[in-house]
Simulated scan of single mutants.
Amino acid sequence: MPAHGVDACGITLKDGRRIEAGTLVCTIGSRTHPLIEALPVEKVRGRLRVASDMSVPGLAGVWAIGDCAAVPNRRTDGASCPPTAQFALHQGPQLAANIARVARREATQAFGYRPKGLMTAIGHNRAVARIQGVNISGFIPWLLWRGFYLLYIPTLARKIRVYLEWNWAMFFPPDIAHLRFRRTRDDLNDER
C-alpha cells in the first residue's frame, strides 16, 4: 500500500491506516524509461541486452550504453557492468571507436574495464569508499568522491559553479522546505 503522508512519528497509508515509527527508511526503485520498455528486444532486469561491442542484437545500427544497457564486461567473464557513471564514462569512448570501426568495415572490439574502486556519499560530508581493495569512510572519502565527479563535469564555468554550490552546502545544508517535489505520472494514475 503506497504512503499518503510521512511525518516525524510515522507513515499514513492511502487507506488511512497509520504506522507509527521512530525511524523511517525510504528506498526508491528506478523504472526503465518507456522507450526502452517498448523496444522489441531482449532485456535483462529492465536493461537492454547488448552484445559485447554494445550493439543491440536484432536492431541493426542501434547501440546502447550506460544504465539502459546490460553491457557485458570481458574483464569480469562477461558479467554485466553495473549501471554507474564510472562504467558509462568508459563505455562512451569504446562505443565511439566501435561505430568508427563499423564505418571503416573493421571488426568491433568487446568492452572491458576494471574499476578503480567504488564510492558513494552517505550523508552530509560523509562517504564510504573501496579504493584498490581498501575500505575507508568519513570525510576524506567524501572529499575524494566530490573531487572525482568534479573532474568529469564539462566546462570550467560549470565546474566553478558546482564547486561553489558544493562548498556552500558543506556549511549550510539544504533547507527541506525549499525542495520541489512533483508527483510522477504513475502516482497520478493510481488515484484515478
Rank of each mutant, 00 (worst) to 15 (best):
R114P: 02
V25N: 11
Q94I: 12
L118V: 11
R101Y: 04
R161K: 12
A96F: 07
A129Y: 00
M54S: 10
A64L: 06
A88W: 08
N135W: 11
I28C: 13
G16W: 02
Y152K: 04
R75T: 07
R183V: 00
I122C: 06
K116P: 05
A70D: 09
I65V: 15
A157M: 08
F181R: 12
R105K: 15
H33Y: 11
G46M: 01
T76V: 06
L13H: 13
H124A: 03
G16V: 10
T23Y: 10
I99H: 01
R158P: 00
G5H: 12
G92A: 13
C68T: 15
A60Q: 09
V6P: 05
L151S: 07
L156S: 05
T27F: 04
R183F: 14
I99K: 01
A103R: 14
D7E: 15
G16I: 08
R75L: 09
I131K: 12
N125D: 06
A51Q: 08
D7P: 08
D15R: 00
L89T: 10
C26H: 14
G5L: 04
L156P: 04
N189S: 12
G117I: 02
P93M: 05
L188R: 04
F87R: 01
I65K: 07
R161L: 04
I176A: 09
P115S: 14
L118W: 09
F87T: 03
G29H: 05
T12M: 04
R17Q: 07
M1A: 13
F181P: 04
E37I: 02
P93S: 04
H124I: 13
V56G: 00
G58V: 06
Q94S: 15
A70K: 12
L144D: 01
Y152V: 04
Q91N: 04
Q109R: 14
V134I: 11
D67Q: 11
K116E: 15
I131F: 14
D7R: 04
L13W: 02
L144R: 07
G10D: 06
D67G: 03
S55M: 10
D15K: 08
L150G: 05
A107C: 08
G147I: 03
G61W: 07
Q94L: 13
I160H: 00
G123F: 03
L39N: 01
G117F: 09
R17E: 02
P72T: 08
S30H: 07
Y113M: 13
H33L: 14
E191S: 05
A60Y: 06
E106Y: 11
D187A: 11
L188F: 12
A3V: 13
I122P: 02
V62H: 03
W145G: 00
G112K: 02
Y149S: 00
P82M: 15
R104P: 07
R158W: 02
A110S: 14
Y149R: 00
S55N: 10
A107H: 14
S52G: 15
R126C: 09
E20P: 00
A69L: 12
N189L: 08
G133H: 03
P72A: 03
T32W: 01
R75C: 12
T27V: 15
E191W: 02
A169S: 02
A96R: 07
V6L: 15
V102R: 13
Q132M: 13
W168F: 10
L89R: 13
T120S: 14
A129K: 02
R49Q: 07
I99F: 06
L35Y: 10
H4P: 00
V25D: 03
T84M: 06
D186K: 06
L24D: 05
R75N: 10
F111P: 07
